[in-house]
Design a protein around this nucleic acid. Structure first.
Lengths: 286, 286
DNA sequence: GCTTGTGTGTCAAGCCTTTGTACAAGTTCC
DNA sequence: GGAACTTGTACAAAGGCTTGACACACAAGC
């Protein structure tokens, strides 16, 4: 998708250095156009950023490349990995060090494709961030700093995720008074990368707005996020209203507390993990 | 049906370039009049804009054309038109049409560099969006849809804007209870593109968090957004607390209602336009 | 202290590709 | 008649490719 110049801009690694890393460590094996131009995808950008982050933290280039390559080919990231990297993110946020926050996120996102890292590394890290704030380990501004950085990454992935206008259309958003949208955004990204035309409504969407959007947009489905137990009743309200106005709409609930919802007609309760949830939903649209 | 000149006006793609794309990538196969003039429909305009948008986001022309052509073969046709640029965004949002929203934003951001378009096109469009919502012309979900799309663009620009860790460090954020962060984010982008190490705190930052962040991060300056008149008192609280704990900190207020603030020590009131505001602030750091 | 070797980032030369734009000469529209 | 369109060709700037080399830092070994 991207030429080497664009890859350089997006990863912060100099053009000549990208080629040198490829030549010396085989860290990337970009596709080529018929004329020989290298072409990099988003995963490749992530890997470049991860290597850069490790080098900036004192690793040698060879070791950093080997580590990222290793992670890519052999062990899929495990949840066990999360705590230590999470603390890197929390430490960076607590120190109010933007470069370190970016470095920690490079590390998380660079471990593999979006699908490989989102459920096991990124969202757990975000959750721990919230916990650290709840426990007063870090200040709300620190939490803000880190979660807005994650949000930016997800936003970029959403924009790069697919071409709008293709595929079935699906509404994604949170019910009224629900504000923690990282999970919903991550789900929207996953869905978009599956070729779905996601209409992302964001947080705190009133019931009437859901109905309005569902009718005006001719969506095939709507996914309501249920982040906390407090969202259960509002999400149910949304579902009831949608069911009444658009009986043909495929309805689904997602998020950590979705299991607590009583069924209203045929409502799909999606898995907690966003990648699986996206796949289940796409299956329901077939 | 439009002639090539009209198509150029509506798509923002130069006449000669439309022909070049047709010749090189086969991206369009316009109908012809009996005398040979090319004739384009709304769908063709949409495709031109889609290609342009992808190119502006870093794709090569050939890749962008291939992607749009690919999408065309696998998806339903859609028709978007561009009656007026600013209301195009509102119309798209009101129709809950994500592709049209992206198209309208492509149009806005495609008019020039970030610095060239942000104050005259993008932020005015965002303001009109808010007005349309306040006037009940559009639903809050529609407003959300469009403003989160703008926010995504700005987020991507922030991440691309510079390398963190270089330059003087500056805090940017909104006072407690202030939530409209598009302007603050745009300012953060402008500042970052000037080589400043921006620590973006986001919306609704409590007074103690400002103080905490200012001390822990060793920032040189702090910029508090004052979006509405309701933010005046809270922003003043933030400034007073910062002045007390970090007397050496360069303090500034930005945003549309910043002029309404009384001065506390040496406080810079920044211009409303974010590009100028960023330049003024950088000047204060010299 | 000095040499040697290695790792790593950067750069240059020479050539090729991409891509936006321009020009010429003729035709059509209004 | 002039603006807008047609086809075809051309061109220049920007960017990419490969190969090879160079400078600097650092460590090991003598």
């Amino acid at each position: 998708m991207y030429t080497i110049g664009q890859a350089s801009l997006r990863s912060g690694v100099a053009v000549s250095l990208i080629r040198a890393w490829e030549r010396r460590y085989g860290i990337l094996r970009p596709a080529r156009t018929s004329s020989g131009y290298r072409l990099y995808d988003d995963d490749a950008i992530g890997r470049l950023r991860a290597v850069r982050g490790l080098i900036e933290r004192g690793w040698s280039a060879r070791q950093a490349a080997a580590a990222v390559l290793e992670q890519e080919t052999t062990s899929r990231p495990r949840a066990i990995d999360a705590p230590e990297r999470r603390s890197a993110l929390i430490d960076a946020a607590a120190r109010y060090d933007p470069a370190a926050v970016e470095g920690a996120l490079d590390d998380l996102f660079g471990r593999g494709s979006f699908e490989a890292v989102i459920d096991d590394l990124v969202l757990p890290a975000a959750a721990m961030l919230g916990d650290a704030w709840a426990d007063s380990q870090i200040d709300v501004a620190a939490e803000h700093l880190a979660s807005s950085a994650i949000s930016r990454r997800l936003s970029a992935l959403f924009d790069q995720g697919g071409l709008p206008g293709s595929g079935p259309r699906v509404l994604v958003g949170l019910p009224p008074d629900s504000r923690h949208e990282l999970g919903a955004l991550a789900f929207a990204v996953a869905l978009r990368r599956l070729g779905v035309d996601v209409l992302y409504l964001g947080a705190d969407v009133p019931v009437e707005s859901w109905v309005d959007a569902a009718t005006a947009s001719a969506a095939r489905a709507a996914v309501v996020g249920v982040v906390t137990t407090r969202d259960v009743s509002t999400a149910t309200d949304v579902a009831t209203a949608l069911r009444a106005s658009r009986p043909d709409l495929v309805l689904a609930f997602g998020g950590g507390s979705a299991g607590g919802l009583s069924k209203i007609g045929e409502v799909t309760v999606l898995p907690t993990r966003v990648v699986e949830a996206a796949e289940v939903l796409r299956g329901r649209l077939r």
